[in-house]
């Protein structure tokens, strides 16, 4: 990994952002102006296969999705810890490898725990 990295390297990303954002805003604006605008009550209603709408979507949803999101945050943080190690893997040598495998063993233990608890069972 080249150590010298300056803010100028990131300038092109900002330029890409300008190009992309310019396109998105222009298109949204143009598409809003073009095209007919004839509103009726039924057309502006939510679409539920043509039958009358029952309530709205601001209801509680399955806890499983929330659980997956929390587990993702938990494991993704651990995965991020592995990146600096992987980049310097060749310099850290065998000792570094053993240390990281210890960390990964703990990671796997947690992983086995959530599977045994049935956190990822969808029935």
């Amino acid at each position: 990994m080249n150590a010298e990295s300056n803010a100028l390297d990131f300038l092109p990303i900002f330029l890409t952002f300008l190009v992309a954002a310019g396109f998105v805003v222009t298109t949204m604006f143009v598409t809003h102006i073009l095209g007919p605008k004839r509103h009726t009550k039924i057309k502006d209603d939510t679409f539920e296969c043509g039958i009358e709408v029952q309530g709205n979507a601001r209801n509680p949803f399955s806890i499983k999705y929330f659980l997956v999101a929390i587990l993702f945050v938990l494991f993704d943080v651990e995965v991020i810890f592995m990146y600096p190690w992987a980049v310097n893997f060749k310099q850290l040598g065998a000792l570094g490898m053993v240390e990281m495998f210890t960390f990964m063993a703990i990671f796997v233990l947690g992983f086995i725990y959530i599977i045994k608890k049935g956190a990822l069972d969808w029935d």
């Binding site: 990994m1 080249n2 949803f61 399955s62 999705y65 997956v68 999101a69 993702f72 494991f75 993704d76 995965v79 991020i80 592995m82 990146y83 992987a86 980049v87 310097n88 893997f89 060749k90």
Partner: peptide
Amino acid sequence: LRASSQMISYELAMGLSIIALVMMTGTL
């Protein structure tokens, strides 16, 4: 909900698979 929960689940495996590659290349 399905889309986001699917995308974050596979992002984990994706991130982990790249680590093996980064170990060999030594660069990001």
